[in-house]
Structures are given as structure tokens and as C-alpha cells.
């Protein structure tokens, strides 16, 4: 357990000293959402209608943006080999790195989301659900994306390839996430959506690190 925390701590320290990844992801998220009024027009009703979907799609893209580098630098400088050879199981390494990635890129999205919801004129009834879905959904995005990041290590055009592989797998998260907000906006209970999201998270927590570790083992072979 202390080793696991050591891994998380190292990744957090690396991210904080490099400093760019976290801020770029959240800036991208904000810009992406801000573009929509220019595309569909400033009509408040239309914006309020699409707010939940827009914020969720932007969150997907923002999380993808930083995923490419999840294992990339460790792979290039040889750290990944050493991590694979350390006494810590590789599954735990994947989980630790994913957790660090989420803390650095996922949490800021959750904080920024309500501000964007205000900009898009979303009804306040949906704010709580928005934050809640992102809190359950963004770790899920990091977990699923981590598999893709591990699979595309060493590939040509890894970043583009990563989006091609991962975006279809993100669809259920998007459906339940945006669906929950829509439900609260229409005065319905978002509970079933949230439970399904939580179920997906519960399934992904053990499975995604396992698949990611399998992919990493091939990458360092």
C-alpha cells in the first residue's frame, strides 16, 4: 500500500513540476464548450437544451487529450521496464498511474463544469447531477482510456489512434452521464443512470488495470 501511494505521489509530483498537462486539459475543456454558442447561436433556450451533452462531450475530449502521455514518457525513458520489474504488480502500477492522471486532469474538469453550465444557461436543477455524473464518470474515462494508452505505446500516430480506439468505448459513459443530467432537468430521478454509471465504474476498477497491464507487458517485451 505504501508502494502504491509512492507511485501515485511520484506521478503527482511529476505532473505538478511539469505543470502543463493539468492546465491544458482544463483549458481545452473550457474552450471546447465556449465554441458551441458560436456554432449553434446564442439563443439561451437552445444552449440550455444542449448544455448537458456539450459539457459531457467536451469532458470526453479533454480527458483523451492528456491520456496519450499517461505511459508515454515512462515508456520512452525506460522507467516502464523498471516499473514492470519492480515488486509491485503491474496492475497496481496501472491503477496508481490512472489515479494520478485522474487527480491531475479529471478533478479540475469537475470544478470547471458548473461554471460552464452557467455560461450555457443550464437550469440550476441539473447542477448537482452534473457534478455527480462527472465525479463518477471521469475516473471511468481515465480507466478505459488507460487501456488505450497502454495499447498504443510505440505505435505510429499513437495519439490519433488512441482516440479512434477509445471514443467508441466511451459511448456508454456519455449516454448515462448526459442522460442523468437530462433526467434531473426534466424533473425525473437521475438515480438509474447514476447507478448504471457506478456499476460501470465498479466493473472497470478491476478489469481496466488488468487489461492495461496485459497491454503494457507486450509493450516492454
Amino acid at each position: 500500500m505504501t508502494r502504491f501511494l509512492r507511485l501515485v505521489g511520484r506521478d503527482l509530483r511529476l505532473a505538478l513540476r511539469q505543470g502543463s498537462d493539468a492546465s491544458i486539459a482544463v483549458m481545452f475543456f473550457v474552450l471546447c464548450v465556449v465554441l458551441f454558442p458560436f456554432g449553434v447561436g446564442p439563443e439561451p433556450n437552445i444552449l440550455a437544451r444542449i448544455a448537458a451533452g456539450v459539457i459531457w462531450v467536451a469532458a470526453l475530449l479533454a480527458s483523451l487529450l492528456s491520456l496519450e502521455r499517461l505511459f508515454q514518457t515512462d515508456y520512452e525513458d525506460g522507467s516502464l521496464e523498471l516499473l514492470a520489474l519492480s515488486p509491485v504488480p503491474l496492475e497496481a502500477v496501472v491503477l496508481a498511474k490512472t489515479l494520478a492522471h485522474w487527480l491531475v486532469t479529471g478533478l479540475p474538469l469537475i470544478v470547471a463544469a458548473p461554471i460552464l453550465a452557467v455560461l450555457l444557461n443550464m437550469d440550476t436543477a441539473g447542477f448537482g447531477t452534473l457534478v455527480l455524473t462527472l465525479a463518477i464518470g471521469t475516473p471511468l474515462l481515465s480507466l478505459i482510456g488507460g487501456i488505450g494508452a497502454a495499447l498504443t505505446l510505440g505505435a505510429r500516430r499513437g495519439g490519433v489512434l488512441l482516440s479512434l480506439l477509445i471514443l467508441p468505448l466511451y459511448i456508454p459513459v456519455l449516454i448515462f452521464g448526459a442522460g442523468a443530467i437530462d433526467a434531473s432537468l426534466h424533473g425525473l430521478t437521475p438515480r438509474p443512470h447514476l447507478l448504471l454509471l457506478a456499476g460501470l465504474l465498479a466493473a472497470a476498477l478491476p478489469l481496466a488495470p488488468w487489461a492495461g497491464a496485459a497491454a503494457l507487458r507486450q509493450a516492454v517485451e
Binding site: 511529476l14 520512452e76 525513458d77 525506460g78 522507467s79 523498471l82 515488486p87
Partner: peptide
């Protein structure tokens, strides 16, 4: 295992780099 790549993180000091691996190694 000491391979061809040095696994040195540019933003961590030498001692931090080494202490991480030492901690991981027990």
C-alpha cells in the same frame, strides 16, 4: 535490471529519482 535506458526523470532531482526506485524496491 539495468538496461540501455537510464529511466531518469528530468524534473526530479537525482536523489528523488533514486529514492523513488529504492522505496519501490523495499
Amino acid at each position: 535490471y539495468v538496461g540501455h535506458l537510464d529511466a531518469v526523470k528530468p524534473v526530479l532531482t537525482a536523489a528523488e529519482n533514486l529514492a523513488f526506485w529504492a522505496g519501490l524496491g523495499g
